[in-house]
Amino acid sequence: MRMRNLANLCLLRATALLSLWLLSTLSSCSLLQKPTVFLRYFCVAYGAVQLHVSVDVQKKNNATNAGAVSGRPVKGWKISSFVKGFLFFLLSILSFHVIAVLYGAPLQEDTEETFSWALLMATLTALPCWCMLGSRLETWVAVVLNRPESEIESFLQTTVLCTVVGAWLGAFPIPLDWDRPWQVWPIPCSVGALLGHTGGLVLSAIQAKRHRLDTTRKMV
């Protein structure tokens, strides 16, 4: 039951992502023309998609009492835990910003661009963790670093790693002298992150499908 959900969820998100992208390209604030505006709207919209889906997941988790991932049973949404999670989310935005600067983004200029990129990265990596694992930073880190045990963990690991690698690879076209308008920080890295994220979603959808087939075969 849950496995199919996960696969669907991945595909649903991928579709949402692509449609958001398409919508923005058609509208006035495309990524190329106004990257910061685009990234801000995109993050809000995609965050909303995630929240909706994950509330769904959360309910099911509660129903089956499968809160073992986070170490203790989750009892709905508490205000305090929400605040904590939100703080961690802000922290992750901040750390992405700092990391971007450490990797060579300008320190004083382009702050808005760097911040928008950090927001995007946090939306693509930290937000799913928050939505699906609850508000413990420990668990978020553990899921990324350890061998995954459940589909949700493997899903999160795949998407987070793909997003990060995508953003990293995105940095390479920046110094090339093709003189294209899109070779400006943060556009290539944002595109890389988005592509990586989509790739991760598709990959984990395939994984979930395969896993399901395997288990049904075993059951037979």
Binding site: Y103, G104, A142, L145, N146
Partner: peptide, 28 residues
């Protein structure tokens, strides 16, 4: 700038690797 970028990448991947495989997932 590219050398600095690569060095940063290497260092963070070293950190990741130091924490990645070594810890088996903690049991319940």
């Amino acid at each position: 700038a590219i050398t600095a970028f690569l060095l940063q990448s290497l260092m963070w991947s070293l950190l990741l690797a130091a924490n990645f495989n070594r810890q088996s997932a903690p049991s319940k």
